[in-house]
């Protein structure tokens, strides 16, 4: 886990709701692999996200990312776009559970909401992210940020690759 991830930043504001991440119009889609094409379709100024996002890019957001609905589509559409981690000041409870259950990390980064507002981290900046330490370097702007660690149970679920894999492994261990 000490690997350093490198990629471009896509920067969003506070209170990005699940309709902005994955609009209700596409809820009849059931194959997660088809979901990235709809990501952030109606986010003002990010309508080009789905077309231009590259695997390895990061989603950076302020407070309360993923507020609103329980739809897991909002996790799948980023996971299957190849975004390795969401970096946010905080995220909604349901979004957080959905992310962990899909083996998908969200790093809570103190101060990033203000940093976004102050222009210290911008669209297209090159980031280096070390998940094991939570260190985030914005190579373009020169600013550095620090993310929190997750709880043991949450980490175990993520390490297993998601809730179902974790439960299967637990059941197997009991036998």
């Amino acid at each position: 886990m000490s690997e350093i991830l490198k990629g471009r930043a896509w920067v969003f504001g506070d209170d990005v709701d699940t309709d902005l991440i994955y609009h209700n119009k596409y809820l009849a889609e059931t194959d997660p692999k088809n979901m990235p094409q709809y990501a952030f379709e109606y986010y003002p100024g990010k309508e080009h996200f789905a077309k231009e996002v590259k695997p390895g890019d990061f989603v950076v957001a302020g407070k309360n990312f993923g507020c609103g609905s329980s739809r897991e589509h909002a996790v799948y559409c980023l996971k299957y776009a190849g975004i390795p981690v969401v970096l946010a000041e905080t995220c909604s409870r349901i979004y957080y559970r959905n992310a962990i259950n899909n083996g998908y990390p969200v790093l809570f980064v103190k101060g990033i909401s203000d940093a976004i507002k102050q222009g210290k981290i911008n669209d297209g900046d090159q980031l280096e992210v070390e998940l094991s330490t939570g260190t985030i370097k914005d190579v373009t702007s020169g600013h550095e940020f620090h993310g929190d660690a997750v709880s043991d149970l949450e980490n175990d679920i993520m390490q297993a690759g998601g809730l179902m894999e974790y439960l299967k492994a637990q059941a197997a261990a009991k036998k």
Partner: peptide
């Protein structure tokens, strides 16, 4: 409220 994965686990367990 939870997501579908959590709910599936609760159905099973």
């Amino acid at each position: 409220g939870m997501g579908s994965t959590d709910l599936a686990a609760a159905w099973a367990l």
